[in-house]
Structures are given as structure tokens and as C-alpha cells.
């Protein structure tokens, strides 16, 4: 059985003027850690709100944990753990008060499901009498996750849980998700960070309300049709322009330290071709290597194809 099914869902705002979700379909298997990867405005939050019954889709069907989002909305509300994008808890309640409040609201107690949250809660337990507003971003997020888990949901829906959180906390958070997955909870998580895609079992790449690809991260990367080169020299901006102007180059864009370059035709000696171009333009300290593409390269390619 699928834990989440989304079928031809379309959602518009402002009386149809703004198309947020455009005929999207995907499925999340039971026990899967599934990622919705896309920038701001890709439609991630709208999908979450439709799945949590907070919004009605214009068209299409969706179900969570076997319950229809329209007909069985009350059941979904009982069986889903949800962390909204801007969830920030009650700042003026302590850690313990927040947790016990949400436990009661979900009709349970902290003790009843303590084993599920124990690993996470142990990390914030020393601060249980501190007001949530005085916690760091990472700790807030742990507490929020505890609150979302407190009623032992079948499906966990996390909307951008790692946005604005520092690297250390982000790493820890993904570790926690892995642990939860092992306990059999289905997790649907969204993120604007392309590098987090690799931490999911399967991902959907979202852009402007459309799904560009659904697969495992490995398969998406494998499907990248070009040989990708990394290039840099002492004058990176000049190199960028020089390569772009060259007829043999298909694409060239800045990517961290290097430029990522693809050639129009598959070439045996692509490295050499690029080096020659760079040398002809008077660059020094040239560095060119064949590199493995990442999700972000695939994303850029796919959004180019989409137009």
C-alpha cells in the first residue's frame, strides 16, 4: 500500500491567476523517506497543505495513510504528524509545556509514546524548563519534531524542516529522520537544498508547480546525459564568459569554486578541448577535470528543458 498518493493534483490561488501546483502525481511507499526537492515557489508548501487537509485542491485526488484528503479529513488529522514550514512552537511556554500541550491536543500523553521520541527528546531534555523562544534554531527544530511525533503518526509530513538551520543541526536532523524511518514511519520531507536530496530514498524534483522527475537520487544523476567538466582559472568570470562564447560549449555556469561545463558533442578529449579554449584566451593556472554531476546539475538541466 502507498502511504501517500497524489494523483493529478492542481492548485491555483487568486481565483486561478496563480498556478501553484500543476497536475502533479507521485506516490510515497510505506516506510519510505521521500523528498520533495525544489526552490521557493515550486509548490512544496501547497502540496503539504493539501495532504494535511488544510487546503482543497482544485482538481485531482490525494490520500494519506489510506485516507482520502477530502472525505476522511478527520482521520488524516488523527494519523499524520506535521511540521509546517514556519512552525515555531509557543515561544513563551517551556520545552516540557510545549510537548505536553501538543500531546494533550492530540489526545495522548508524553509517556504513552515516549519510546518514539526518546532519542530526540534526550538531546533537549537538559533544557526542558527553558522557554522555547530561548532555544537555538537546532533545538527548536528538535522540539518541533518531538511535538509532531508525539501521537505516533503513521505518516510524517515535514515542510522544509532544515531551512535556516545551521549545518551541524541539519546533519543531526537527517540522522534523526533515518532513525525514525527504521521504526517504520513513512516520511515525506521537502527541502530547497539540493545537497539534501541524496539523503532521501526517492525524490521528486519540483519547479514552478511541476514535477520534473521522480526517482532515486542515483538514477536521476545517472540520467544526466553529458560528460560534466569542472573548470577554473585565475580569472573565473572571464573564463565563464570565454567558455560561453565558444561554439563547442553547450553550457557553462558558476558552481561554487569551479565552473561546470558541458560540451555540445560527446568528445573523447573534452578536457583537452576546454584547456585549449582557456589557453587561447590567455588564462593562467588552468584547472580542468571531469567531474561527477550532482542533483543540482540535473535540476538545472531539467529546468532548462522545461523552459
Amino acid at each position: 500500500m502507498n502511504a501517500v498518493t497524489v494523483k493529478n493534483i492542481t492548485k491555483t490561488y487568486d481565483k486561478g491567476k496563480v498556478l501553484a501546483v500543476d497536475n502533479i502525481s507521485f506516490e510515497v511507499k510505506e516506510g519510505e523517506l521521500f523528498g520533495l526537492i525544489g526552490p521557493d515557489g515550486a509548490g512544496k508548501t501547497s502540496i503539504f497543505r493539501i495532504l494535511t487537509t488544510l487546503l482543497l485542491a482544485d482538481k485531482g485526488e490525494a490520500s494519506v495513510a489510506g485516507f482520502d484528503v477530502i472525505k476522511d479529513y478527520q482521520s488524516i488529522r488523527n494519523n499524520v504528524g506535521y511540521m509546517p514550514g514556519k512552525f515555531s512552537l509557543y515561544q513563551d511556554l517551556t520545552v516540557a509545556e510545549n510537548l505536553s500541550f501538543f500531546a494533550t491536543v492530540f489526545g495522548t500523553t508524553i509517556e504513552a509514546n515516549y519510546d518514539l521520541i526518546k532519542d530526540i527528546y534526550d538531546q533537549i531534555k537538559p533544557f526542558s524548563n527553558r522557554r522555547a523562544g530561548k532555544l537555538s534554531g537546532g533545538m527548536k527544530q528538535k522540539l518541533a519534531l518531538c511535538c509532531a511525533l508525539i501521537h505516533k503518526p503513521l505518516v510524517l509530513l515535514l515542510d522544509e524542516p532544515t531551512t535556516g538551520v545551521d549545518v551541524v543541526s541539519r546533519k543531526e536532523f537527517w540522522e534523526m529522520l533515518k532513525t525514525l524511518k527504521k521504526q517504520g514511519i513513512t516520511i515525506l520531507v521537502s527541502t530547497p537544498y539540493m545537497d539534501e536530496a541524496n539523503l532521501c530514498e526517492r525524490i521528486a524534483l519540483l519547479q514552478k508547480g511541476k514535477i520534473m522527475s521522480v526517482d532515486t537520487p542515483e538514477n536521476i544523476i545517472k540520467a544526466f546525459p553529458y560528460t560534466l567538466y569542472g573548470a577554473k582559472s585565475d580569472q573565473i568570470y572571464k573564463l565563464l564568459n570565454d567558455l560561453r562564447l565558444n561554439g563547442q560549449v553547450e553550457s557553462c555556469y558558476a558552481f561554487g569554486e569551479f565552473l561546470h561545463v558541458t560540451l555540445k558533442e560527446k568528445q573523447e578529449n573534452g578536457k583537452k578541448i576546454l584547456r585549449v579554449i582557456a589557453e587561447q584566451n590567455g588564462h593562467s593556472n588552468i584547472w580542468i577535470e571531469e567531474i561527477k554531476p550532482g542533483i543540482e546539475d540535473s535540476f538545472i538541466l531539467l529546468s532548462g528543458e522545461q523552459g
Binding site: 497543505r49 494535511t52 488529522r77 509546517p84 501538543f102 491536543v105 492530540f106
Partner: peptide, 8 residues
């Protein structure tokens, strides 16, 4: 949002 999604 959380309260609405809860059984409350």
C-alpha cells in the same frame, strides 16, 4: 496549522 491538523 498544527492545531487545525490535530484532532482538536
Amino acid at each position: 496549522e498544527i492545531l487545525l491538523v490535530s484532532p482538536f
